[in-house]
Design a binder for these strands. Sequence first.
DNA 1: GAGTGGTCTAGACCACTAT
DNA 2: TAGTGGTCTAGACCACTCT
Lengths: 238, 238
Amino acid sequence: MINKKYLVIYNEIAKQIDEKLWEPDQLLPSEHELKEQYNTSRETIRKALNLLSQNGYIQKVRGKGSVVIPRNKYDFPVSGLVSFKELAEKMNNQTKTIVHDVSLIKPNSYLKQQLQLNSKDQVWQVIRVRDLDGGKVILDKDFFNERYVPFLSKEICQDSIYAYLEGEMNLSISFAKKEITVDEPTEEDQQLLDLDGFHNVVVIKNYVYLDDASLFQYTESRHRPDRFRFVDFARRQQ
Amino acid sequence: MINKKYLVIYNEIAKQIDEKLWEPDQLLPSEHELKEQYNTSRETIRKALNLLSQNGYIQKVRGKGSVVIPRNKYDFPVSGLVSFKELAEKMNNQTKTIVHDVSLIKPNSYLKQQLQLNSKDQVWQVIRVRDLDGGKVILDKDFFNERYVPFLSKEICQDSIYAYLEGEMNLSISFAKKEITVDEPTEEDQQLLDLDGFHNVVVIKNYVYLDDASLFQYTESRHRPDRFRFVDFARRQQ
DNA sequence: GAGTGGTCTAGACCACTAT
DNA sequence: TAGTGGTCTAGACCACTCT
């Protein structure tokens, strides 16, 4: 299936670490040994190991080797680009999505700026509320540039939009900028969410880009503060 | 100073993009051209370009070239490992640090767990309040494993602890796990911060590791919600 | 001194985009 | 078809850690 050697090697070792075949704080085999094992060049092994390092599996120590980092299985994959659906499945909770609105609108000036739109571009607006364990705790407002997403429907939004975009529309998401702040609830928040006396909402603004570096989506995800958790893994340069 | 070619090239191009010598959405010179320009091999150029890509400067598009990504100069460097001091300098604000406590303590069981300590290990506890534009809005609680940080003083904590640890102690920080949640204020929060009627604090828990993958610091940074902002840049795998 | 990872090279072939 | 980035190789030298 995958024909990239370094990915095959990365996936194999990552799986072994997940399954604790390598104990935390142990050393992996050296690059030279792995090179022999996988019958490949050292640079290819190094590509795989660098991926493991970037994803928090190992820490490379010069002169010593590659140390396996202690991981909580559920800690890491939360950072980055994660859809509500994936998250819900991971958390194994009772979840429900209520689609309030799916429509093609003329963007106001704020949206125009956020999505870097021309004056005639229209956008798809999707407003959804996420119900977790019987409480409406997340309000998701998605805006898609019509140029990249010509059609949406309530049915698609009920399910996973990303599955549709990537699977059927063949769009390929590559990176996202995220900004997290804590704000006062708006009237909309108060109407659509079960705020239960909370005085703040956590606002996550997401700018999502495609493979060719074009900005195609702006999202605001508004969380009741008790149902918000964000995990990040940061590696210092070099 | 720096004798790594790919870093020199990375820094030079990053600076050029910061200074808008390359316009957003333009293409950089091809890898072949850069290779000639810098009189080096293509793999070295690729290393520099991959760093630029990982740090949100460019997006590489197969068959086309490297597209410069629109950046807000102040957006990006906030993610990852940033000390309060760097942040304060960047934001150019009036800031003040009040050191409430610097002492060597026996860790309670929570700390023991967070820092993965043996039963006889002691920890340095540092409690500081950050005053931004005349309001006490951040409470920083730092805990250092004594094994790695044998000595601290009020003077050191008044300034930048990291400058001391990296400059004088020669410790080298390499990566951190971060967890962000929103909590009720504790009594300590209420006593030490100007909460001004806010009902929540943003809690950032940080686990900081050294070069050799040993955990040496646990930090809780507790922010008044109106003074909190977190920016993240996530690139999808491959 | 032996073994480790970090950097760098010169060249090859492939997949994709433009025209 | 020419030009782009993506992958892979085999080899070299260096800086570091361990004993």
